[in-house]
Amino acid sequence: MTTTADITATPVATPRRPRRRSRRIPSWVKWALAVGTPTLLLAAWWTASADSSNTFFPSLEQILTRFQQLWLFDHFLTDVVPSLANLAGGFALAAIVGVGLGFVLALIRPVRWLLEPIIHFVRSIPPVALVPIFITMIGFGNDMRITSIALAATFPTLIATMDGIRSVDGTLKDVSVVYRLTRAEKFTQVYLPAAAPQIFAGLQVSLQVAFIVMIASEMLGAATGIGALTLTAQQSFMIADMWAGVLLLGVLGFVINKIFDLVKARILAWYFGAKEAQRAT
């Protein structure tokens, strides 16, 4: 039994209760804490590492200098852009195939029975483990990377779409029959919006998987890409370069996820609004 809860980590929602807190903390303290702690941590890193002689932990100043030299803009076009292009291409493929196949599997029972065991098996394989297969089959080029990313990232979206569509409210289905909606209308105006929250949850997991596989596909013996540069720097003991790479990947991981959040909030605005209204009553 698989539900999207498996991949989205959303626990069972308990009804909201009004909160009573005896101690009220003024909001400026909250803001000061939320902004202050990261600033303080960075400052602590800066000063603690300022005259670091430890080879593994160079000073933050050095890391940032290398960061600027490497990524802005020396390797930007040759490594950062191709990495992100692979990520975008692989993710786009995964999204299309995942949503499309999810629709087919949810609506056509024999196809679902036919493919479900295979899907559950393949998605249990750690996604990065598929990269070596594609390397030996396709080589180290961008084709291999996009294929690896796309295949690994398809499954979360596929399973979420399947679950989302299968759990579409029966009343909705009946109403669309009563109104004699055509097949196309049913798909685009009933099923797709009803399953959208779950599809987006799946897409978000897919994006994270795609990001991981992007890095892995570059770390396994390729010469270009952010991951490749970072691992090569580590292996050739250019420690500040390695830290700069890790920093870039970390920031990218955060930014990509944030962009997705924004897109999701925009497209699903009606859904979050409805939930908010429900909660208020």
Binding site: I25, V29, K30, L33, A34, V35, G36, T37, P38, L41, V128, Q208, F211, I212, I215, A216, M219, T230, L231, A233, Q234, M242, G245, V246, L249, G250, G253, F254, I256, N257, K258
Partner: peptide, 20 residues
């Protein structure tokens, strides 16, 4: 509140990034 921003930043970063 002190940890929210830090956790929010770290949450979407996969461990493979720290691997090197």
């Amino acid at each position: 509140f002190a940890t929210s921003a830090v956790l929010e930043f770290l949450k979407p970063i996969p461990p493979i990034v720290i691997l090197p």
